[in-house]
Design a protein around this nucleic acid. Sequence first.
DNA 1: TATTGTTATACTCTATAACTATA
DNA 2: TATAGTTATAGAGTATAACAATA
Lengths: 150, 150
Amino acid sequence: MARRPFPIVEQRAEHALSAWSLLLRRTMVVQRQVARELARHGMSLAQFDLLATLRFSEGVTQQELAGKLLVSKGNICGLLDRMQSERWVERRPDPTDARTNRLFLTVNGRRCIDHLLPVHDAVVSAVFSSLNDRELKELRDVLEKLRVSG
Amino acid sequence: MARRPFPIVEQRAEHALSAWSLLLRRTMVVQRQVARELARHGMSLAQFDLLATLRFSEGVTQQELAGKLLVSKGNICGLLDRMQSERWVERRPDPTDARTNRLFLTVNGRRCIDHLLPVHDAVVSAVFSSLNDRELKELRDVLEKLRVSG
DNA sequence: TATTGTTATACTCTATAACTATA
DNA sequence: TATAGTTATAGAGTATAACAATA
């Protein structure tokens, strides 16, 4: 069943594949748990990500936000439409460039995300409680070294 | 900005959160690269996962497949509809239970996935080339220990 | 001309829940 | 009644392109 001629290369590739498989599976399961918990508070993952990002970078443009969230500007536009109608965020025209909007949380949006961040963090903390401090550090260090280029 | 009263707990939680943030970001970027590469061959990530899973477990039922792929049975149903019309998979009624289908690759489907697996593997190998053998093993070991329960 | 955001199209993926046929 | 698969609905994300207003 070997797909490559050189055993060393083959073994190395298999290790990479099993690491990737684990990485993907673990991440998906955690994402799902987070999503389920957020859903109980009436919020989607995409909306949470947007609020949480905005929480620490108010005043960004829509393009900048799209870059941070790794989605298209059309996507951001639709998301913002829905979230603006929920009164969570607001677009304010940039005073120096009439083409761009600056994004801000409403008072309601800030209260909402400040309530949800601990909920999110609790799920994550619970998941990572299966690692001790050394293992947690190891994981962070090795992920830091995993240089992926978008 | 501390959201918790005890510094030790707080620090621990921050480490978990930064590990999770890295885990999620790295995974998403790699997923996107894989998806882009597969798209050039006219296949989506979900379809690839289905074919790759079926490649090594022909004869499973739709429910079993849903379990392996961590998605709902309704989802699998729609996916299979599309992939059956592409002549990649086929449903065969179970001879002993008229309620269930057994899933198989067509000849075309098998050729397709056998062509795409190396494409997928190459992307993954390239990404993980930024880790040396020891780091790769460290990553696998620590992910193994990260016990998540769906 | 280039850029920001908007709109439109079309498709894929996802979960949920109600439905059917069978066991 | 329980299970396997189907269908309907709704929301999310993606890609692309055309478009208006502004720079």
